[in-house]
Design a protein around this nucleic acid. Structure first.
Lengths: 102, 102
DNA sequence: CAATCAGGTTTGTGACGCAGACTTGTTTGC
DNA sequence: GCAAACAAGTCTGCGTCACAAACCTGATTG
């Protein structure tokens, strides 16, 4: 349990990765709206994810305006799956005390 | 997702809470061995959990040696369940890309 | 052409996780 | 009987992080 991937574990980044796991490519502004993060915050989280090679960042221009695109790498996808399995197992072991699963 | 309970979300504390959710009362040394945390680290995590009123700490003497006992409060149990539900939901939404659930 | 805005990046700050040093009291070796 | 070691925790210091505010660069508008 103590070997959980802190890069993925952080809620903001988990949200980003969750989005990327479905949409496959997404721009900065969309991520901002979707995650509710501020620009600065989002920028540093993206940087951290890129540094971990979990995502790739491509900077282009849409017309004259800069456009930052992010997409998940296979490594990122693997990390996300691994995290999911690990946490699922943990939560399942936590689950029994829950009497009424409604 | 961004409203996740950071007190519970921290892996070390989640481990502690998981233990307490089963054993109901447990001493410092046992927690140390079981979690692999150092004394200092464990102490501060327990302090934080107590400050959140998720656990209660009782200090006694076993013979002449101090003995620190921890037990989970109803509030702690509720927080843990709530966290579990929230994370389960999130992980389930993450789950579909996982092809083979073995 | 000054002001505004879009799209991001860099900086500053408070909190945190972690481990090592310190504390208090007890037990053991000589 | 006293010094040395040990047990059970707490306190201190350090590196890192999450977050937001300030800043930057270039395009657009009054």
């Amino acid at each position: 349990m103590d070997d959980v991937d802190r890069i993925v574990h952080e809620p903001a980044r988990l949200t980003i990765l969750a989005l990327l796991s479905k949409v496959q490519e997404v721009d900065f502004i969309f991520l901002m709206r979707e995650t509710g993060l501020t620009k600065g915050n989002l920028s540093s989280h993206l940087a951290k994810l890129e540094e971990a090679a979990y995502i790739e960042i491509k900077k282009q221009f849409r017309g004259k305006i800069p456009l930052t695109l992010a997409r998940m790498t296979p490594k990122g996808r693997a990390a996300l799956q691994s995290y999911r399995k690990q946490m699922s197992g943990l939560l399942r072991r936590l689950g029994e005390p829950l009497a009424d699963p409604s």
